[in-house]
């Protein structure tokens, strides 16, 4: 589709509600060590599991987080990884007043992974 005569406005990705555990969204500005610290604090104190959401290019950062966690706590932590396709919606607003506002759909790959303690290391 030709976008020369349109302003492109990207809608925000809808977020999924998960009933339990801590949820962390990874975006471009998230600091790697901060994400890891946040995850470990949640596991030590409040939650049994931490779920990370990474979208598009941030999957690289998500993999880095997983790699670091594996290096440090691979003996005690376990990971479940899920990949899926997210539908992104853009509003195309024309420069000319006569035309209508259009909508287009894009696909983006997303990775969701869950970090939790292995069964042997649960405090009971």
């Amino acid at each position: 589709m030709d976008i020369d005569n349109y302003d492109v406005y990207r809608r925000e990705t809808p977020k999924v509600s998960i009933p339990e555990g801590k949820i962390i969204y990874i975006n471009g500005k998230s600091n790697l060590m901060y994400l890891i610290d946040r995850c470990m604090k949640a596991l030590e104190r409040t939650s049994d599991s931490v779920t990370f959401f990474a979208l598009g290019a941030q999957i690289n950062k998500g993999c880095l987080v997983l790699g670091e966690l594996q290096q440090r706590y691979g003996f005690t932590l376990d990971f479940d990884i899920f990949t899926k396709t997210e539908t992104m919606i853009d509003d195309l607003i024309p420069y000319v007043d006569d035309e209508d506002i259009k909508t287009r759909e894009r696909f983006k790959s997303a990775m969701i992974f869950r970090v939790y303690r292995k069964e042997n290391f649960l405090n009971k």
Partner: peptide, 18 residues
């Protein structure tokens, strides 16, 4: 098509939670 909610249910910790 992938069922995300099904995966969440399988990985749920409600039954096993402390």
């Amino acid at each position: 098509n992938t069922d995300f909610e099904n995966w969440i249910m399988h990985t749920s910790f409600v039954k096993n939670s402390i």
